[in-house]
């Protein structure tokens, strides 16, 4: 019926070739390497079966790092929804002033996370950090912000959330602006206001923006790498690593490529499982679907 010739399919071949070489083949090759004790550079790889995976299960460092990864993912996602939605609601009016404020709040999202991490390091550093200068003004002792694993993890989540809350804000603003004004006018005539309007009009109609923002933040949080590298380099010890940073340490520093490859397989599995869970629970919770 249509005059699009079947040979138009050739147009996606270049894209598929790039995917094949730079993603699909490494994915399969990585799966293969994960069954070896390869050190990363010698020509031969020794097959050791599922030993790497068994080791992952008993490696308490890895278990701890997986937990960190969940905290980075879920913590950033929660904070970014709170910050992003709050800012969008406050700055939703298209005035000049709110336009400037939005532009400032969005600004850090453009900076390389490595640079943002460097900037925040100037704040949280022990000796010359700006925050400890403030602490000193109150006569208190300097705090080793980044040398305490729990505090450092909170700081990493906070830095990541602040840097990218502008993107969540913009997603919610797009959602808010797609709600017809007459819905609010009609409900005001009916005597609804404030919280009631938010719960019955705004919240349900923001659902697409909410799901989009949550998926984006969750996946980026689970992949977190750059900020951790600059702020703590995974330390003290291994206590603030994510799976991503631990993979690079295991590969390049410990020269344990086979073990690092098995962590890569687990990281990919974690992302896929999270994506499936989020997708299915969102489609079940969708207020639009009865």
């Amino acid at each position: 019926m249509r005059s699009v010739p079947l040979r138009a399919n050739l147009l996606y071949v270049p894209a598929l070739i790039i995917f094949a070489i730079f993603i699909a083949y490494p994915l399969i090759r990585g799966f293969g390497i994960s069954f070896t004790s390869w050190d990363g550079f010698s020509p031969q790889k020794h097959f050791i079966g599922v030993d790497n995976y068994l080791r992952l299960f008993t490696d308490s460092t890895f278990g701890h790092v997986v937990l960190n990864t969940f905290i980075y993912g879920v913590g950033s996602t929660v904070l970014q929804q709170v910050f992003g939605l709050g800012l969008a609601l406050i700055l939703r009016k298209p005035t000049r002033r709110s336009g400037i404020l939005r532009a400032i709040i969005y600004l850090p999202a453009l900076v390389s996370p490595v640079i943002m991490g460097t900037m925040y390091y100037l704040l949280f550093q022990y000796n010359d950090g700006a925050l400890n200068d403030l602490v000193g003004l109150f006569g208190a002792d300097k705090v080793a912000w980044l040398n305490n694993a729990t505090v450092a993890i909170i700081i990493i989540v906070l830095v990541n959330s602040l840097q990218f809350m502008g993107i969540s804000m913009v997603i919610y603003l797009a959602g808010l602006h797609s709600i017809p004004a007459m819905y609010y006018e009609a409900s005001t005539l009916d005597g609804a206001a404030g919280w009631k309007q938010f719960l019955h009009i705004t919240a349900p109609l923001l659902w697409p923006a909410f799901t989009a923002s949550v998926v984006l933040n969750l996946i980026n949080g689970l992949k977190l790498f750059d900020v951790i590298t600059v702020l703590t380099a995974g330390g003290p010890g291994y206590s603030t690593n994510s799976v991503s940073t631990l993979i690079s340490i295991t590969y390049f520093d410990s020269q344990n490529a086979g073990y690092a490859a098995s962590m890569g397989v687990v990281l990919f599995a974690i992302i896929v499982v999270f994506a499936l869970i989020v997708n299915s629970s969102f489609s079940r919770l969708n207020p639009e679907a009865d």
Binding site: A15, F19, F22, I23, A24, Y25, P26, L27, R29, G30, G32, I33, G40, I219, L222, K223, F225, V243, S244, T245, I247, S248, Y251, A257, A260, A261, G264, V265, L267, F268, I271, V272, A275
Partner: peptide, 19 residues
């Protein structure tokens, strides 16, 4: 292609770098 989008870059660090 959707599956390609879900692959975290660091998860294929070892095979990608060695390739």
């Amino acid at each position: 292609i959707l599956v390609m989008m879900m692959v975290p870059p660091l998860s294929i660090l070892v095979p990608l770098y060695s390739m």
